Simulated scan of single mutants.
Amino acid sequence: MQPRIPPTLVIAVAIVGISLVTLGGVMLPALWYELATRRDPARIAFAVIAMGGVLVLYGRLLWQNLMRRTHALHRVGLVVVTVLSCALPGALGDTWVTSLIAPAGLIPLVLPLRQAIVVTAAGTLGISGYGLLLGFHVLTVVFEFFWFPFAALSGFVSIWMFHVVQELREARAELARAAVGEERQRFARDLHDVLGHSLQAVALRAEVAERYLDRDQARVRKELTEIQRMARDSVRDVREVVRGYRATSLRAELEGASAVLRAAGIGCEPPEMLPDLPPHVHQPLGWVAREAVTNVLRHSAATRCRIEVGATADGVRLEIVNDGAGRRAAGEGGSGLVGLSERIAAAGGEFTAGHLGDGTFRVTATVPQKGP
């Protein structure tokens, strides 16, 4: 079962919360030592103020940069966090040595990558020298030397992964909009091809009828009859375009759907098609494929989508199953699936769509071999 990707805001809150809990956790033993052992009110007050300032600034800077609200003053905030982090062990002793790691996670967030690398290297050497200057044990200094760049790398990976997920989500939404836009363009092209020629022919016939209006009544009646026939044919063609009958191929629909899904990063292979499918199954099953794939792109966090076409005792069966569906499945209860059910029923078939309970969503449509 594939986990559903939560909304971007939830991921950001989780990153900030986990980072603050981790940072507070490594500093909390030192604060507890001040409270339980030394019991100096002045030291405790200084420790609480400095530690609180570090956590508040860290959380704010992390949140702002996750939301891409960068500002030049963030560098000032990084400097303040660094000063407070260095002041704690400098004033209170080596029990606060872990606070020196606090600025590391902010460096790749606040600074450009090249500057962050240089500052991280300088910071690694700086805290090592600072630890030796304060008389810390050599093993403590070695620990800080390796932990500081690791913390900086962790901060970089966290924000990089967050922005990658955000960009992938936006790309998926854009692909869904592109799929809808492509369908609109296809409809517009078909409508133009049908009406453009027909209306031009009607206009020419009308001009001929006008030309012979005073000279040849028989010719005028003939032209008017032809105009009526062409108008009826145009109405029929427009209805075919609207209903999707014109040049509809289930194979083309499924190949296009699988290509769109793969472009969105969703694993999907074109299904094996049955030979000699009856013409009447292409239109209703083609609509099912379009709507189901659009729902996968819009409403799910799918990584895999399986499309199968097969023959049953009841007719031709199309099944589309995707993972990444939440409790309320992709498109469930919407007008799209209701419309598909009505289309398949009109074709004499059966339609089902629903959540399977294991994070997957299945759409199944069956159309009889013989037309209604």
Rank of each mutant, 00 (worst) to 15 (best):
L213P: 00
V110F: 08
T312I: 05
A292W: 07
A152D: 04
A289E: 03
I15F: 09
A171S: 00
T364R: 07
G334P: 09
A171G: 00
G135T: 00
H137E: 07
V79W: 10
A201R: 15
D40M: 15
L153V: 05
A365L: 11
T303E: 06
G286S: 03
L100Y: 11
E167D: 14
E255A: 11
S258T: 03
L100D: 09
H280N: 01
S19N: 13
E308K: 04
R243A: 10
D193C: 07
L199M: 15
P279G: 13
L111T: 07
R4I: 12
V309K: 01
R327L: 09
R327Y: 05
R362G: 10
I227D: 03
T22G: 13
Q185Y: 05
L28N: 05
E183W: 02
T98Q: 05
T312K: 10
I11E: 14
A289H: 00
A325T: 00
Q228V: 02
S335G: 01
R215T: 04
Q217F: 07
D358V: 07
P41W: 15
P7Y: 08
L340G: 01
T70F: 14
V48W: 15
T8K: 02
A91I: 05
R328E: 11
L191H: 13
E342R: 13
I18Y: 11
A176Y: 10
P368K: 01
T312H: 06
L35Y: 06
R114T: 11
W287Q: 03
G244S: 04
A218E: 15
H192G: 13
P108G: 07
T82M: 09
E210V: 11
M161Y: 05
V220R: 02
A365I: 09
L340I: 01
M1S: 03
E269A: 06
C268T: 10
L100G: 11
L35S: 03
I117N: 09
I107Y: 10
M161E: 05
S249A: 05
F146H: 11
D94I: 11
A42T: 10
A203E: 15
R298S: 09
Q2D: 14
A218L: 12
T225R: 08
S85I: 14
L224P: 10
A42L: 12
G155T: 07
L250Q: 13
V202M: 15
D276M: 05
A30F: 12
P89L: 04
G339Y: 06
K222V: 01
T364N: 10
V26S: 13
L57I: 08
L285D: 01
Q185E: 04
H197F: 14
K370S: 12
L100I: 10
S234E: 09
R169L: 03
A346D: 00
A347K: 04
R246G: 11
A301Q: 09
Y58W: 05
T303F: 06
T303D: 04
L133P: 05
L20G: 08
V309S: 00
